[in-house]
Amino acid sequence: MNDLIGFILISIGLVFDLLGCVGLVRLPDAYNRLQAATKCVTMGTCSILFGTLLVIGFTAAGMKVILCMIFLILTSPVASHAIARGSHKSGVKLWEGSVCDAYAEDNK
Protein backbone atom coordinates (compact mmCIF):
# COMPACT_ATOMS: atom_id res chain seq x y z
CA MET A 1 0.00 0.00 0.00
CA ASN A 2 2.80 2.39 0.94
CA ASP A 3 4.52 1.52 -2.33
CA LEU A 4 1.42 2.39 -4.33
CA ILE A 5 0.92 5.79 -2.64
CA GLY A 6 4.65 6.44 -2.98
CA PHE A 7 4.65 5.78 -6.71
CA ILE A 8 1.54 7.96 -7.18
CA LEU A 9 3.27 10.82 -5.33
CA ILE A 10 6.41 10.39 -7.44
CA SER A 11 4.32 10.60 -10.63
CA ILE A 12 2.54 13.75 -9.39
CA GLY A 13 5.90 15.29 -8.56
CA LEU A 14 7.25 14.46 -12.02
CA VAL A 15 4.22 16.08 -13.68
CA PHE A 16 4.66 19.29 -11.68
CA ASP A 17 8.41 19.39 -12.34
CA LEU A 18 7.67 19.02 -16.05
CA LEU A 19 5.11 21.85 -15.91
CA GLY A 20 7.67 24.01 -14.14
CA CYS A 21 10.09 23.42 -17.00
CA VAL A 22 7.38 24.22 -19.58
CA GLY A 23 6.74 27.45 -17.68
CA LEU A 24 10.44 28.23 -17.81
CA VAL A 25 10.23 28.11 -21.61
CA ARG A 26 6.84 29.74 -22.17
CA LEU A 27 6.73 32.66 -19.72
CA PRO A 28 8.13 35.97 -21.01
CA ASP A 29 10.66 37.43 -18.56
CA ALA A 30 13.05 36.46 -15.77
CA TYR A 31 10.68 37.19 -12.88
CA ASN A 32 7.75 35.24 -14.28
CA ARG A 33 10.08 32.35 -15.03
CA LEU A 34 11.32 32.43 -11.45
CA GLN A 35 7.74 32.12 -10.24
CA ALA A 36 7.14 28.97 -12.23
CA ALA A 37 10.54 27.52 -11.38
CA THR A 38 10.31 28.16 -7.63
CA LYS A 39 6.79 26.92 -7.01
CA CYS A 40 6.66 23.90 -9.23
CA VAL A 41 10.17 22.72 -8.48
CA THR A 42 9.81 23.08 -4.70
CA MET A 43 6.52 21.26 -4.51
CA GLY A 44 7.26 18.75 -7.27
CA THR A 45 10.62 17.78 -5.85
CA CYS A 46 9.21 17.56 -2.31
CA SER A 47 6.50 15.27 -3.64
CA ILE A 48 9.08 13.05 -5.33
CA LEU A 49 11.15 12.94 -2.14
CA PHE A 50 8.14 12.13 0.03
CA GLY A 51 7.10 9.36 -2.35
CA THR A 52 10.63 7.97 -2.14
CA LEU A 53 10.39 8.04 1.65
CA LEU A 54 7.16 6.03 1.52
CA VAL A 55 8.70 3.46 -0.81
CA ILE A 56 12.01 2.91 1.01
CA GLY A 57 10.82 3.55 4.60
CA PHE A 58 12.90 4.95 7.45
CA THR A 59 16.23 3.58 6.31
CA ALA A 60 19.55 5.42 6.05
CA ALA A 61 18.44 6.99 2.78
CA GLY A 62 14.95 7.74 4.09
CA MET A 63 16.26 9.92 6.90
CA LYS A 64 18.33 11.93 4.42
CA VAL A 65 15.21 12.39 2.33
CA ILE A 66 13.50 14.10 5.29
CA LEU A 67 16.49 16.42 5.71
CA CYS A 68 16.47 17.21 1.99
CA MET A 69 12.79 18.18 2.10
CA ILE A 70 13.29 20.54 5.03
CA PHE A 71 16.31 22.24 3.47
CA LEU A 72 14.63 22.47 0.06
CA ILE A 73 11.56 24.23 1.49
CA LEU A 74 13.77 26.59 3.49
CA THR A 75 16.31 27.45 0.80
CA SER A 76 14.56 27.48 -2.57
CA PRO A 77 12.45 30.63 -1.88
CA VAL A 78 15.58 32.34 -0.55
CA ALA A 79 17.47 31.50 -3.73
CA SER A 80 14.71 32.83 -5.98
CA HIS A 81 14.48 35.95 -3.84
CA ALA A 82 18.22 36.52 -4.29
CA ILE A 83 18.07 35.95 -8.05
CA ALA A 84 15.09 38.32 -8.47
CA ARG A 85 16.72 41.08 -6.43
CA GLY A 86 20.07 40.65 -8.19
CA SER A 87 18.56 40.75 -11.65
CA HIS A 88 16.49 43.83 -10.83
CA LYS A 89 19.56 45.62 -9.47
CA SER A 90 21.62 44.75 -12.53
CA GLY A 91 18.94 46.20 -14.81
CA VAL A 92 16.97 43.26 -16.19
CA LYS A 93 13.77 44.79 -17.57
CA LEU A 94 10.27 43.57 -16.79
CA TRP A 95 8.20 42.22 -19.65
CA GLU A 96 6.66 45.05 -21.68
CA GLY A 97 3.13 43.85 -20.77
CA SER A 98 3.82 44.46 -17.09
CA VAL A 99 1.38 46.70 -15.25
CA CYS A 100 3.54 48.49 -12.70
CA ASP A 101 7.01 48.50 -11.13
CA ALA A 102 6.93 50.01 -7.66
CA TYR A 103 10.46 48.82 -6.92
CA ALA A 104 11.99 50.88 -9.73
CA GLU A 105 9.90 53.91 -8.76
CA ASP A 106 11.12 53.79 -5.18
CA ASN A 107 14.78 53.29 -6.04
CA LYS A 108 15.33 56.15 -8.45
Binding site: R26, Y31, N32
Partner: peptide, 17 residues
Protein backbone atom coordinates in the same frame (compact mmCIF):
# COMPACT_ATOMS: atom_id res chain seq x y z
CA UNK B 1 1.11 28.03 -12.13
CA UNK B 2 0.17 24.86 -13.98
CA UNK B 3 -3.06 26.49 -15.21
CA UNK B 4 -1.25 29.60 -16.42
CA UNK B 5 1.44 27.60 -18.17
CA UNK B 6 -0.90 25.18 -19.93
CA UNK B 7 -3.46 27.82 -21.01
CA UNK B 8 -2.84 28.66 -24.68
CA UNK B 9 -3.41 32.41 -24.22
CA UNK B 10 -0.95 32.64 -21.27
CA UNK B 11 -3.22 34.62 -18.86
CA UNK B 12 -0.64 36.71 -17.01
CA UNK B 13 -0.73 40.34 -15.94
CA UNK B 14 2.56 40.81 -14.09
CA UNK B 15 4.00 43.72 -12.14
CA UNK B 16 5.93 44.61 -8.98
CA UNK B 17 3.73 46.00 -6.20
Amino acid sequence: VAYRVIHPALPINPGIV
